[in-house]
Design a protein around this nucleic acid. Structure first.
Length: 883
RNA sequence: GCCCGGGUGGCGGAAUUGGUAGACGCGCUGGAUUCAAAAUCCAGUUCUGGCAACAGAGUGCGGGUUCGAUUCCCGCCCCGGGUACCA
């Protein structure tokens, strides 16, 4: 009986498809389980073996949960807007929709060949007008929502209270006021611009070295009219929500860092000879006594007022210079700090001392107030700056028993941890914190500031407004019209979706406009009064479609609404969401933001979308490196006796592990693996490689290993002569139930590698025994089914069943079979295991002691030694302390 | 620099969370089968010494706690990811 996977697998894939085996019914009486994969961008290259890693894991869990009686929602779709299809259109004139369609068809074919149990009737595609109609609809909700900070909740814009004085100013002022509150707004924004892609990018899409994440080109700053979303309003909610989620701590930490909450105080400083106050934000108001200078950002609006006549030239020169610098230059840590004295002094409110005001670009306009008080003794950046410009450094926090304390007290070393205040009291102002520690100092100083009305406790966040438009064709059009009189209106719901016009040319406008400006007929609109308007030519970023797709799977064909309310209440939240960690902050933060807005508006029933998140690790591949460190393409590598050589130069190469890449020619295509070993082997190997969340290299030899397991299992379990109608052998029965238990536990904990190992161990035993009862064989087929569903269905049919086993009950563990009467104890002397001794588990400790002492092997280890102590842990170990 | 992960045989990785380190798989060695090979089956395989029984060493490094540490604590080193003048 040969394991003929090329026959078995298409047979069952056809069966599942024809019988709609995995169609999900909205049966509200059953317990639900919503298990979601991050949907792919359908690239022209097709799947690589990294995709099926997460997909297989969720498929195993889905199949298992079905057998456990759950109603499982397990859908797939495509995040299909994106630049590659548009770039291809520019080169060839092929409509992006055509390219996208083709790529999706290929992805679907590849995914189906893996035997994944998706409900294909729920497939969605973000570029489908029936889908993006609702993306546009959500945009309208964002536009028509404001955030009530008091209630910490998004509310309809119609409920926004407008102050009397604004109403008095008239309609224009009211509209302006309202637009300042909308979660989506249109404004001039300093944005990142990629000259090669001819589009703006969100902060998050710019890498730390200033390169565009998508293309690697260096981005520049540009001022453009853009759509932005006020995600920072939801900072606190986004932070709070994390606590209740079952997510990897690393991802939660990354989101927390990204939101970047900090608490401190705003403090107002009088400026000498000027009727202006300089407001700073500090997290360390307690160190005010140590403030020896102040810094304002070069773009600060008070710079011109503060700078004195004789410093004017130098400051202006500095402002110009830093305006020209890219953000990369400004944030490059390697460089030295720069700055210029303004010539003017501020008054430190805690002791009325004048301190110089400097302009320096290490202070950023976009955070806090764009101005700081500098405490060089207790802040490393200020310390560096003060050293450079010979500004006094006054230590006000005694670190006490710390190495280098003298240096710190002398102001030669920076100290930013806790301590006891010194030099921190003023009779004149009444603030005295000497002797207190950091926490007490902060509290007392803030109270003092507030009582004098010169400062207040404040919270700041790093999170910025989300730049939500792109100068692209292949994205969702904004349902927005800009009228000639300046009014902005949204397209009526009944006129959604607003579809993309056909274009002849996909090249973007030079001035930074999207290709949509070329579609004149689409672009220009006239209302019933003859007023002319122009449609928004920007389109939404790719994040838009992926922000809410998990909601559409719930009711994908609904034409009347975004989804049915009852269905949403039944299926949400997503119970398990599996995907790559590269979406840790972007997609997952954006999604959570939209979801919370929809929740506040009463559209969805849960505050958070994804209850449990799991990140699969990246699949890497072997690559080869020459002696000089250069990488060698895999097709030029020859293996001889476990060593690797360059096919042309003959030089020995080192095997390394690297990301799969076209240039290294080490990309593995699942199609090839399936052709050679079958889908069940592909699935098994994806899971057997190692823990799901770890990065690990693909090794074809490993695929062979799991293939051997399936082939061995097939030869045994598909052979009638091995399957007998008898009561089961005791050893097999016991191991079978241990295996059920192990597999079940491991699936629940997403430890698929060890569950497969357990199945192998069982397989090895029955083959050794030579025969097995029919009942056992059927049970084995069931527990194998989530992992290798094709071959499991084949066994099931072979044992005479007419229906799929996809909905058979998961076998129960017979606990009675697992009870052990004896245990083989490792007997150790001083912690070193010396021999094994089997003892009944019901033996009392003194009896056990006697039994071990009576053992002749014990005597050997006791020669000339005394027993000091005997440690016995029933069911675990026996250890004798001798000496 | 800071925040997360992670370092275990020739390789991928196990270890019920303090109790026999190396499950399972790959590779390798020997044997069976075969004219031969592939496939398959059986045995062995952490390292060092020994024919063997056995002995010693061993989970990145150095300390510590413990009868007992891959697991807990302290101090380092290396690799991966994130972040970066956020006051």
């Amino acid at each position: 009986m040969d394991y003929n996977f090329t026959e078995i697998e298409p047979k069952w894939q056809k069966y599942w498809e024809e019988n709609k085996t995995f169609k999900t019914i909205d049966d509200f009486s059953k317990s639900k389980y919503y298990i979601l994969d991050m949907f792919p961008y359908p690239s022209g290259a097709g799947l690589h073996v990294g995709h099926p890693e997460g997909y297989t894991a969720t498929d195993i869990l889905s199949r298992y949960k079905r057998m456990k009686g759950f109603n499982v929602l397990h859908p797939m779709g495509y995040d299909a807007f994106g630049l590659p299809a548009e770039q291809y259109a520019m080169q060839t004139g092929t409509h992006p929709a055509t390219t996208t369609q083709k790529n999706c068809d290929n992805f679907r074919r590849q995914i189906k060949a893996i035997g994944l149990s998706y409900d294909w009737d729920r497939e969605i595609n973000t570029t489908d007008p029936r889908y993006f109609k609702w993306t546009q609809w959500i945009f309208k909700q964002l536009y028509n929502t404001w955030f009530d900070h008091e209630q910490q909740k998004g509310r309809p814009i119609s409920e926004l209270p407008v102050p009397e004085e604004i109403i008095a100013e008239g309609k224009e002022a009211i509209n302006k006021y309202i637009s300042q509150k909308r979660l989506a707004y249109y404004d001039n924004a300093q944005v990142w611009w990629c000259e090669s892609c001819k589009t703006v990018c969100a902060n998050e899409e710019v890498l730390t070295d200033g390169a565009h994440e998508k293309c690697g080109n260096q981005v520049i700053r540009k001022n453009l009219k853009q759509w932005l979303l006020r995600i920072p309003h939801y900072s606190e909610r986004l932070l709070d929500g994390l606590d209740g989620l079952d997510w990897p701590t690393g991802i939660k930490d990354m989101q927390r860092n990204w939101i970047g909450k900090s608490t401190g105080a705003d403090v107002d400083f009088e400026v000498e000879g000027l009727n202006e106050k300089l407001r700073v934000y500090t997290t360390r108001p307690d160190t005010l006594f140590g403030a020896t200078y102040m810094v304002i950002a070069p773009e600060h609006k008070l710079v011109n007022a503060i700078v004195t006549e004789d410093q004017k030239e130098a400051v202006e020169k500095y402002q110009t210079a830093s305006a020209l610098k890219s953000d990369l230059d400004r944030t490059d840590l390697a460089k030295e700090k720069t700055g210029v004295f303004t010539g003017r002094y501020a008054i430190n409110p805690v002791n009325n001392q004048p301190i110089p005001i400097w302009v320096a670009d290490y202070v950023l306009m976009g955070y806090g107030t764009g101005a700081i008080m500098a405490v060089p003794a207790h802040d490393t950046r200020d310390f560096e700056f003060a050293k450079q410009f010979n500004i006094p450094i006054i230590c006000i926090l005694d670190p006490k028993e710390v190495e280098g304390r003298e240096e710190i007290l002398a102001g030669n070393k920076c100290w930013y941890e806790d301590g006891v205040y010194i030099n921190s009291a003023s009779d004149e102002t009444g603030l005295k914190i000497n002797g207190l520690n950091k926490a007490e100092g902060i509290k007392k100083t803030v109270e003092w500031l507030e009582s004098k009305n010169i400062g207040r406790a404040t919270t700041n966040y790093k999170l910025r407004d989300w730049l939500f438009s792109r100068q692209r064709y292949w994205g969702e059009p904004f349902p927005v019209i800009h009228w000639e009189d300046g009014e902005v209106t949204l397209v009526e719901d009944e006129n959604l979706p607003l579809e993309l016009p056909a274009l002849e040319k996909y090249t973007p406008g030079e001035s930074g406009e999207s290709p949509l400006v070329n579609a004149e007929e689409w672009l220009i609109v006239t209302d019933k009064n003859g007023r002319k308007g122009r449609r928004e030519t920007n389109t939404m970023p790719q994040w838009a479609g992926s922000c809410w797709y998990y909601l559409r799977y719930i009711d994908p064909l609904n034409e009347k609404g975004i989804f049915d309310v009852k269905k949403e209440q039944y299926w949400m939240p997503v119970d398990l969401y599996v995907g790559g960690a590269e979406h840790a902050v972007l997609h997952l933060l954006y999604s959570r933001f939209w979801h919370k807005v929809l929740f506040d508006l009463g559209i969805v029933s849960t505050d958070e979308p994804f209850q449990k998140l799991f990140n699969q690790g990246m699949i890497l591949a072997f690559a080869y490196e020459a002696a000089n460190g250069s990488k060698v393409s895999s097709d030029l590598v020859e293996e001889k006796g476990g060593k690797y050589f360059h096919a042309e130069t003959g030089g020995e190469l080192k095997q390394i592990v690297a990301k799969m890449s076209k240039s290294l020619k080490n990309v593995v295509n699942p199609d090839d693996v399936i052709q050679k070993y079958g889908a069940d082997s592909l699935r098994l190997y994806e899971m057997f490689m190692g823990p799901l969340d770890e990065r690990k290299p693909w090794a074809e030899k490993g695929v062979k290993g799991v293939f051997n397991f399936l082939a061995r299992a097939y030869r045994f379990f598909a052979d009638t002569t091995n399957i007998v109608e008898e009561t089961e052998d005791k050893e097999i029965a016991k191991l079978l139930h241990q295996t059920i238990q192990k597999v079940e536990f491991d699936i629940e904990h997403l430890k698929f590698n060890t569950s497969i190992s357990a199945l192998m161990i069982f397989n090895n035993l029955v083959i050794k025994k030579g025969k097995v009862s029919k009942n056992t064989a059927e049970t084995f087929a069931k527990i194998l089914a989530p992992f290798a569903p094709h071959v499991a269905e084949e066994f099931w049919e072979f044992y005479g069943h007419k229906q799929t086993l996809a909905y058979e009950n998961w076998p129960n563990v017979d606990k009675g079979l697992l009870v052990e009467n004896t245990f083989e104890y490792p007997v150790s002397f001083n912690g070193k295991t010396r021999f094994m001794k089997e003892l009944p588990l019901n033996l009392q400790i003194p009896e056990m002691e006697r039994a071990v002492l009576a053992d002749e092997r014990t005597a050997k280890w006791l020669e000339e030694k005394q027993i000091r102590k005997i440690i016995i842990v029933p069911g675990r170990i026996i250890n004798m302390v001798i000496g």
